[in-house]
Design a protein around this nucleic acid. Structure first.
Lengths: 145, 145
DNA sequence: TATTGTTATACTCTATAACTATA
DNA sequence: TATAGTTATAGAGTATAACAATA
């Protein structure tokens, strides 16, 4: 591939931008949030996708893991009284997992903490923060046309 | 805490910005890069910090894990002929880990892939990309005063 | 006696294969 | 027989404690 000065400039800006961004967003905050709440990462992930009742198979798909792992993850949720599991009435092979009231409450708190912007975003001058939001909106729009 | 309309506006923009950004940068690309190169995540991490020779203890600190884990990680690097481990000449309790030529080459490739900006950054219009870089530069500068 | 790294052990995360119960 | 979920088992990541070699 041959480079001209325009490509070089474009590539450099992109690399520079990505380098800055990587330093700001990694490592991801979800691991420390899970630890603060004494949750295994896998249990945290399950709680996250249990905004509505799910079958074991649905959980496996949503968590990108094998069916057999979900058994242990839901066991852990039940041990902590965060969810219950019961056979579906229409097909008793299927187990439905549903958050308890305690689980719903915890999930709400966790989602709130995940949504909380990090200091570097909050501390940006208003103008920069709005410009950043607008740029990201355009980026997301360009990715999902 | 009492909210007024200015705080609400500021908070909303920050949350919105963070939500957009989270969708763009998570999950982190390093896991798939490691998998493509048939490296365990821990081995990948070690390679990353072995830009210069390190002792086992230094590796434990840099990788935020226990000393005892480093033994296995460096075993894996040695099994793949990516590094060698030898006792320090000044204190033979200390083991120095150094990348092989093969390890150096692989490390260089991996660092290159990590630095490669994702499509959404590369596809931004020039003006947006430069504006984004400038905002992030200011954010980083504000964090490290 | 103190320190560096290793070994033994245990808990967690994940995957595959065999199994149970339902359909 | 086919499917949903469980159990058995194994490889990998990480931590603590006991240990060996060296200082």
């Amino acid at each position: 591939m041959r480079y001209n000065k325009f490509m070089a400039v474009k590539g450099d800006t992109a690399r520079e931008t990505w380098g800055l961004l990587s330093g700001l967003v990694y490592p991801p905050p979800f691991l420390s949030i899970a630890r603060e709440h004494d949750l295994r990462p896998a249990t945290f992930g399950a709680l996250r996708v249990l905004g509505e009742p799910r079958t074991m198979g649905q959980l496996a798909e949503l968590l990108h893991c094998d069916n057999s792992n979900v058994t242990g993850i839901v066991d852990n949720l039940e041990d902590k009284n965060l969810a219950v599991r019961f056979p579906s009435e229409v097909d008793r092979r299927i187990k439905v997992v549903e958050l308890s009231v305690k689980g719903e409450k915890l999930r709400k708190r966790l989602m709130e903490e995940m949504a909380k912007p990090p200091d570097w975003v909050r501390s940006l001058p208003d103008k920069d923060r709005r410009a950043l939001r607008d740029i990201l909106q355009r980026a997301v729009a360009a990715e999902n046309p």
